[in-house]
Write a protein that binds this DNA or RNA. Structure first.
Lengths: 127, 127
DNA sequence: CTGCCTCACGTACACTTGTCCTTGAGCTTG
DNA sequence: CAAGCTCAAGGACAAGTGTACGTGAGGCAG
């Protein structure tokens, strides 16, 4: 299970950027933040350090500068995080969450079509 | 917006029980915990107190015993929590979460059928 | 009435989290 | 070379969280 501690909000925010960037220095992550999100350089540094101690990233010095790269795949974090939420909020049942997504959050026509495609494909897989 | 502080993990756990019970004393919530979840009576008490200070429950003394009842609807908490997660983990996009639920978490045939029903109904609503 | 049980309520305490400050080394440019 | 910039690294610090203990009052069994 390789149990790492779960990611906090801020850590997730930074991890997402790192997934997008593939690999990055503190500065690059800091600059990748959306402009309305003002947060100090050293705060980002702290998040990356914590991601490291929690085992979510690889890191090495490149010259004088430290580079970080994701070690745990987004899919893994997503699985764990969503699983935890379903447990906490829906007692482990997936369907209520789907229902909420479909009924209580607007869903576009495109999304709807895509969803149907997904279902069709799945049903095709298991005859 | 009536902005309450978000619920923590433990608080959510207890809030869910309270939603199920409708209204309950500390003891009742404590006894409603799944048997494998061992947690002290006073810990539950603390969670309920915090739910109160955060504005999520109503509470009153009934004789010598304090009774708690949900004040914020589950749907509200679900909306806020899920919204926050989608923001953090998917940059605000709902579809990737659906995709994850359908593809990466097993979905039963019954759920699948139910999902289709949901979609059909929605589509019927907006011709 | 004396123990014991059960509550409410306050307190505690270590750990996590969001956020930043400080220090000291290397780099750059006048 | 000296002043200023840029990093890494370590600390710091208040708020939030998970978890529980202690105290004191009300009830009930002997």
């Amino acid at each position: 299970m390789t149990d790492r501690p779960a990611l906090s909000k801020g850590e997730t925010e930074v991890a997402r950027l790192l997934w997008d960037l593939g690999q990055a220095t503190v500065r690059q992550v800091h600059e990748a933040l959306p402009p309305e999100r003002t947060i100090d350089f050293t705060t980002v540094q702290t998040y990356l350090r914590r991601l490291d101690t929690k085992g979510y990233v690889d890191t090495w010095l490149e010259g004088r500068t430290r580079v970080y790269a994701p070690k745990v795949q987004p899919s893994t974090v997503i699985r764990e995080t969503v699983g935890e939420l379903i447990e906490r909020l829906f007692g482990g049942q997936t369907l209520p969450l789907m229902r909420h997504l479909i009924e209580d959050r607007g869903i576009t026509d495109d999304d709807m079509a895509e969803l149907r495609r997904l279902l069709d494909r799945l049903e095709g897989d298991q005859p």
